[in-house]
Design a protein around this nucleic acid. Structure first.
Lengths: 339, 339
DNA sequence: GTTAGCACTCGACCATCAAGAGTGCTAACG
DNA sequence: CGTTAGCACTCTTGATGGTCGAGTGCTAAC
């Protein structure tokens, strides 16, 4: 593709991102200082249309980028920016104290990202197929109530309160810890077979009845550890975009379902993924773009953070913010893993 | 107000709730079987307008209820329904196993309510000004990491992970439990003075530095217990209503801010509160209605569940669902308190 | 390959018009 | 006095048509 055509495509994308208006040949010619006449631009635009990079809302409007046009722009044309040092400083300051649970950190990072970009932010909790159950704790909360805490080597912590039918005795505590260390601790979370729960419980003899809720809860927690949760922030930001005026419900409802999206995020744990429109695979997102950047824990890809917005999103300005946030998140999560 | 006028008002409200269309005099006359002529209806409607119960979108449309009209309808006119026994059974079955944390129960109840009503549901976590800190636990999670768990007499459990700068020793554990039982356990959560934290920490001498993050986290958790969290579900449902087409962002953004709403809910812990439009106090909600019903723990009002929707909401059908859910929630929460 | 010129298309905007819905008012009725 | 029929009036809705301007595609010339 000729250099001029590239410049034209770049201009149209930039202009449409900035204003939301189609760009016409005369406007572009003027933007180039009149060095090329509008007729020439028209010829080029016509070819760009034929190649599928541009489309026309209607005959007498200018051109706007097609999804293929955005793709070419992202891959070859867009400017590279960095976020300012003071901004970097501000962001890392806001996050550096959230070094407890990954979930809190990610949710805070998501808020910042949503504010920064004016889009909705999303992230997945860390997920590592190799992660093992590092620790199981049972904390008495009441005479018949305990809290079960499970810690994975990925740093993820899950806890849940569980009520049983009788008083929590030393015997129950001991039995629980025995079961936990025999069948759960040091196992890969993915390998723990939920079907085995029955046999484990059965082996407890007369204590089986009392222990069942505890073992079931423990098993549910280990399952929860093998699944990435989706965290969403700033969804309402999306309502400010014209493009979502008519299908806001579809999109928001899809977002709130969580699971399909979290699968999508888990499948794209690269340093940078830009998914434009129909590249997202889900019909509900065919008018949206996703920008994702993975974070690492101890050098291992563990999850992603990113944003969702209309396809007409300011890729070049927002990509650096997302990359930066994922770097910060990587740093904080890796550091808390030093225990 | 004459009986006929009441019937007319009731019909207009019902009709508008069902169809979203204004009702005209001819339609109403026909609905009454022609027993009264449209001219008579017109006279009555004119008076109802003068009294402020009805308004006209424009001259040649029929009448729709004003907010005052809805208020009169809710107070005097609407039908009383009950939800079917099978429905009651279905709902209570879905909830009866969520007897651990109140937050999980309420969030599940909120999902059900949102599905049931097609509105967004909201609820507050239990809050009791008299509630005391019943228990504080510190669970080692890693060599330098602990999880602090605080349990209040209201049944609310808050936990957070905390990292410190040195290994967690027996000495630290003991010191922590000493501080906790001296200054936190058995205290009313509301009475714990955050300003005292400094003096507590200072009294620890050379251990002060290590202990600070732990004590601060503990103090933050007790503060969190004195505040009702707001749980929202099914927000995207609201996007299906015509009335929110133009101000969806305002409303959704307001909902996601949480705090003002949770204050509103805490202030309305009655068996049933219906807040219509401007009665909601917040400008962002002037076109919305809130239906709330409080739940009790051990006979004490502890929080509310409810829904938010457009003012044109089916009050008579939805109120029973909300009351029922709050009764179920009361039951489950009171029962888990028996420890 | 580039450009000027021009016919053509199409949406946005505006005014006009007719149809229909619903009202408010008046006068008559029982 | 409450109720009703009748009618003029208002206002929205939708259709129609015309103008304007923007932008294009094509052709012929440079």
């Amino acid at each position: 593709m000729s250099e001029r055509k590239q410049k034209i495509l770049a201009f149209i994308v930039d202009y449409y991102i900035a204003t939301g208006e189609p760009a016409g040949s005369k406007l572009i010619s003027a933007a180039f200082g009149g060095a090329v006449s509008s007729a020439t631009i028209r010829n080029d635009m016509s070819e760009l249309s034929e190649l599928g990079f541009l489309e026309q809302p209607h005959t007498s409007a200018g051109r706007i980028p097609s999804q293929k046009g955005y793709r070419y722009y992202v891959d070859h044309l867009m400017g590279r920016y960095e976020i300012s040092v003071s901004e970097q400083f501000r962001i890392s300051n806001m996050l550096k104290n959230e070094n407890g649970e990954p979930e809190r950190l990610l949710s805070r990072a998501g808020e910042i990202l949503a504010d920064l970009t004016g889009c909705a932010s999303l992230s997945t909790t860390p997920l590592d197929r190799q992660s093992i159950i590092k620790r199981v704790e049972m904390v008495p909360i009441g005479s018949k109530t305990v809290m079960i805490v499970v810690l994975a080597s990925s740093g993820v912590i899950k806890s849940r309160v569980c009520r049983i039918d009788s008083e929590v005795t030393i015997e129950i505590l001991e039995l629980f810890y025995n079961v936990a260390s025999a069948h759960f601790v040091s196992q890969r979370a993915h390998d723990i077979n939920t079907a085995n729960i029955q046999t484990i419980v059965a082996s407890l003899g007369e204590m089986a009845l009392v222990m069942t809720p505890l073992i079931v809860t423990l098993s549910e927690l280990t399952t929860a550890i093998t699944q990435a949760d989706l965290l969403l922030e700033g969804q309402s930001n999306l309502l400010n975009y014209r493009e979502f005026e008519n299908n806001a419900y579809e999109l928001m409802d899809f977002l709130s379902r969580g699971e399909p999206l979290s699968k999508l995020l888990v499948a794209h744990r690269d340093e940078l993924s830009v998914l434009i429109g129909r590249e997202n695979f889900f019909k509900e997102m065919e008018n949206s773009s996703l920008i994702l950047s993975s974070y690492q824990i101890g050098g291992q890809d563990a999850g992603s953070v990113g944003i969702i917005g209309p396809t007409r999103i300011d890729y070049s300005r927002l990509i650096p913010s997302i990359k930066f946030i994922s770097r910060i998140v990587s740093g904080i999560l890796s550091q808390s893993l030093d225990d």
